[in-house]
Simulated scan of single mutants.
Amino acid sequence: MENASDTTGINFILLGLFDYTQTHLFLFAMVLMAFLTSLMGNTFMIMLIQVDPQLHTPMYFLLSQLSLMDMMLVLTIVPKMAANYLMHNRSISPAGCGAQIFLFLTLGGGECFLLAAMAYDRYVAICHPLRYPILMNQKLCLHMTAGSWLLGGVDGLMQAGATLSFPYCHSREVNHFFCEAPSLVHLACADTVIFEFFMYVCCVLMLLIPLSLILASYSLILAAVLHMQSTAARKKAFATCSSHLAVVGLFYGTLMFIYMRPKSSHSGAHDKVVSAFYTIFTPVLNPLIYSVRNKDVKGALRKWLVKHFRWSQ
């Protein structure tokens, strides 16, 4: 049964992702496993990049920031969802809801621009290898990273503040497993048409501007690769970019499915499943994709294992 606090006061009620059937209990356990795997995988990726001098390059610094964003994203969503489910208490305070909206949009928006920065890094490395230390210097790398966090933070702050400024005088039941701005705005007892339009435009810009930069970078990369005479060089270039393209496809595919569809085609059940994919399961796949497809990461991992587990040889 739900606690009394779920139906009284000013808290919102998160209807959640799971019921209490055996099938849903199994799925909940899978989500917890994915959460722990994501935390361990991204933490280990950050640690590996920090301790191995060969990975102290702009490419891997940006990758460590991607892992940090993914780790923070699952920490923003899963612990509250799991606590509510286990305690049979689905309530969340307005402050908690605002924090989730802010952090989710900060990390999601920041990751969009960070993926664009990673695409530019690959473009410079493949198309201008001799000028790479100049075009992709440490200062520019730090500026791009800070800009990604800042743009995501501004978007998150504006949307969280505006969403919670509306009066919620009727049902406070949110058909989601975390506080997402579009799900809350639908419950407001005020005219939200202008804000929904602004929110839609903002989301489109946050998605399409970085995606356009990514597509432009990879179009130039493809043109350069096709002009390479060496087959080995082509294979190396494709291998270098394939991991990043896989991450971009997973991340943007699910986000665009949620935020760029017509409102009439939205389904609460489908939206929750897709949201679970990009907030819970994509952060699990990112470190796996980069470690399996990247020789430098595999080499650093092998050295670390040899150094710390000599007894296993």
Rank of each mutant, 00 (worst) to 15 (best):
W304F: 15
M87L: 15
I49A: 07
L211Y: 12
A116E: 06
S183I: 03
Q229H: 12
N11C: 08
A119I: 11
M30Y: 01
A4S: 09
I214N: 04
F113S: 06
S242F: 06
M118G: 07
R234Y: 03
T21G: 09
F28A: 15
M199F: 14
L140V: 03
P182E: 03
L75F: 06
I49H: 06
D155Q: 14
C127V: 13
L250H: 06
A223N: 11
L205M: 15
L130I: 05
N294R: 07
E196N: 14
W304Q: 15
A237K: 02
T192V: 15
F113M: 10
M33E: 13
V284C: 10
I221F: 02
G108Y: 01
Q229C: 07
H88R: 15
K307P: 01
V174D: 08
V31C: 08
L62G: 08
T231V: 03
M47L: 12
L285R: 08
E180R: 04
L115Q: 13
P94C: 10
L66A: 06
M260P: 02
V185K: 01
R90D: 05
Y123T: 06
W311S: 12
M59P: 00
H128G: 08
G253E: 13
F251Y: 13
F12E: 08
T163P: 05
I92K: 04
N42M: 06
P262M: 15
M199Y: 14
R234N: 02
L255R: 11
L220V: 05
L68H: 02
L25Y: 01
L226G: 03
F281S: 02
V78R: 00
A233T: 09
S38T: 13
V154T: 06
Q100P: 00
H266Y: 13
S212Q: 11
H244A: 02
T37N: 08
